[in-house]
Nucleic acid binder design. Structure first.
Length: 564
RNA sequence: CGGUGAGUGGCGCAGUUUGGUAGCGCACUUGGUUUGGGUCCAAGGGGUCGCAGGUUCAAAUCCUGUCUCACCGACCA
């Protein structure tokens, strides 16, 4: 490709709206342009990368036994009514009507469509298992699109769905997908981790997320220092610590106290020896609504995913505001005494293990110090894991890192196949409902995540397998020197002949402009053709990542570039 | 949806407090100059100042409404 025929569209200045480095560089390098919030046009350079990522995904899916299909973006509402998600999904599901006033949705995912397809096409256990996938545009009307294509509303996703007669068979395909994902991200040259995940709204039991590690990641993931434990922080279990022994100091009350925090400050008591309360809504089996008080150590934070799994807690989790809690309990939360509370009290393990702790005194402006739980306190795990916590697998301590979720695999079970009556005849001629797995990859998000992990102050540094071009060919003052032009054209012809993707910068620009643009775009290898070296029949090679330079004989360029 | 902030040529911004009819840098066009790291000089083209209404002799500037966008919180590939 010649830049003169290409749409380079690089920019010197960073658009004000871009907050994170991948978004800034994608705009500056001319990879994407925003059309509206969460909607992006892919320019040639961005599209090339997107297509390379998709190609690797397809190759590994095919290798793992996947079969590609392509489903429509627009889906009829009745399928969603059948699965129950027309009501469940909420405003993230964009609903549209056609000219006959019939309801449709823009597909945020394709469980319904694929299940409908499979129940029609597959009738016998002999056709199983099957794993169908597509690379396709999804639409989710995100509450808050941000960070460019990292969280767009329209995005490219690879989604795969597998169908099985037994859970064992599902488990085996699940493992194949796990391995395929691992190979994909390795091939793309990304540093990533697979972690145990919450299966969330899609439903099902077993689930792993694949995260590209980057400080700008929106998720926190926890690793054990010793073993192989890795989980999304929302899923990382925290074991109950050994209970502390009370010192025997008599408990007392501070009056005219500003609150627990103020008393800790004035008494010099650390926050990990005080508790805090959170009020949540409850609803029991009879549909009786009420509230409960959750108790956490003051230096800990509530894990909402864990809290939602408590008995009788209303879903989705509703946390009372400070004002609402004060109204429910008759005093500010800060003064409520968990040892003597009118509402049901649910205590986190770490708060339950405290002795001689600080808490509210049970009346306004009163705080209790040296409080102790009654002997037989039961406790649950409802807090977020923190760095330094013991690992749930008993092997070492947890480290917390930030990650960008680029893949998620689920064992769905029969949630959709049951609701939509998707089954086959088994060996004995009986109808059996299928069990399903689903496997997603954020193809467009990977492009952004790769940049988060691979850049410097000059721009992007693509890993070779997903680079838009392998080689930048940079002639110095070609329009002035026939010799340079001939040499550059010859190299360009040779490399192109070999199927190597070259961006030949044939603009009438000064060298600095060309260097800067090629570095911004992140092309891994450059060949610089200049008078100086041409005197010795040589050109300069430069590696984008290492910065290493070396001289090459003109006739050796093709062979060199082929093997780097 | 709640909180914060912003809308002025393609991009980055000034001008708004104190109304007087729009400016700078980059980019773009033309000519010259320069040529191994974003040269320099000159001459140009391009903006209903987000939109609507109001106040005023006069509105980018003041008032009201509205739309859009970004950032911080709850969801997700």
């Amino acid at each position: 490709m010649r830049t003169s025929q290409y749409l380079l569209s690089t920019q010197k200045e960073t658009p004000a709206e871009a907050e994170i480095v991948s978004h800034q560089l994608m705009l500056r390098a001319g990879m994407i342009r925003k059309l509206a919030s969460g909607l992006y046009t892919w320019l040639p350079t961005g599209l090339k990368v997107l297509n390379k990522v998709a190609a690797i995904v397809r190759e590994e899916m095919d290798r793992a036994g996947g079969v590609e299909v392509l489903m429509p973006v627009v889906q009829p509402a009745d399928l969603w009514e059948e699965s129950g998600r027309w009501d469940e999904y909420g405003p993230e599901l964009l609903r549209v009507k056609d000219r006959h006033k019939r309801d449709f949705v823009l597909g945020p995912t394709h469980e319904e469509v694929i299940t409908s397809l499979v129940r029609n096409e597959i009738n016998s256990y002999k056709q199983l298992p099957v794993n169908l996938y597509q690379v396709q545009t999804k639409f989710r009307d995100e509450v808050r699109p941000r960070f460019g294509v990292m969280r767009g509303r329209e995005f490219t996703m690879k989604d795969a769905y597998s169908f099985h007669l037994t859970d064992d068979c599902l488990g085996s395909t699940y493992q194949k997908m796990y391995d395929a994902y691992t190979r994909m991200f390795e091939r793309m040259g990304l540093e990533f981790r697979a972690v145990i995940a919450d299966s969330g709204a899609i439903g099902g039991s077993v689930s792993h997320e694949f995260h590209v590690l980057a400080d700008s990641g929106e998720d926190a993931i926890a690793f054990s220092s010793g073993g192989n434990f890795a989980a999304n922080v929302e899923m990382a279990a925290v074991p109950a610590p050994a209970p502390q022994q009370p010192s025997g100091t008599a408990s007392s009350f501070v009056s005219n106290a500003g609150g627990v925090e103020a008393v800790c400050e004035s008494e010099g008591i650390a926050h990990d020896r005080a508790v805090k309360l959170v009020v949540v809504s409850t609803e029991d089996d009879q549909g009786e609504k009420g509230h409960a008080v959750l108790v956490l150590r003051r230096d800990h934070t509530l894990n909402q995913v864990k809290a939602e799994k408590l008995d009788n807690v209303a879903l989705p989790l509703q946390i009372a505001s400070d004002d609402a809690a004060a109204e429910i309990l008759g005093m500010p939360l800060n003064f409520v005494n968990p040892l003597d509370c009118p509402l049901p009290v649910i205590v986190d393990h770490s708060a339950a293990a405290l002795a001689d702790f600080v808490c509210g005194g049970g009346e306004v402006n009163s705080v209790q110090i040296n409080a102790n739980w009654p002997q037989a306190i039961t406790s649950v795990d409802i807090r977020n894991a923190q760095a330094g916590d013991p690992s749930p697998d008993g092997d070492g301590e947890l480290t917390i890192k930030r990650g960008i979720e680029v893949g998620h695999i689920f064992q769905l079970g029969d949630k959709y196949s049951k609701a939509m009556n998707c089954g086959v005849l088994n060996e004995s001629g009986k109808h059996e409902t299928l069990t399903m797995g689903c496997y997603g990859i954020g193809v467009s998000r990977i492009v952004a995540a790769a940049i988060e992990q691979n850049h410097d102050k000059f721009g992007v540094i693509w890993p070779d397998p997903i680079a838009p071009f392998k080689v930048a060919l940079i002639p110095m003052n070609m329009h002035k020197s026939q010799r340079i032009k001939d040499a550059a054209e010859a190299i360009y012809a040779q490399l192109t002949e070999l199927g190597i993707e070259v961006l030949f910068d044939d603009r009438k620009e000064r060298p600095g402009v060309m260097f800067n643009d090629m570095e911004l775009i992140g092309i891994p290898h450059s060949i610089v053709v200049g008078e100086r070296n041409l005197d010795n029949q040589q050109v300069e090679y430069k590696n984008r990542r290492s910065g290493e330079k070396q001289l090459l004989d003109v006739e050796a360029v093709a062979a060199f570039v082929q093997q780097v």
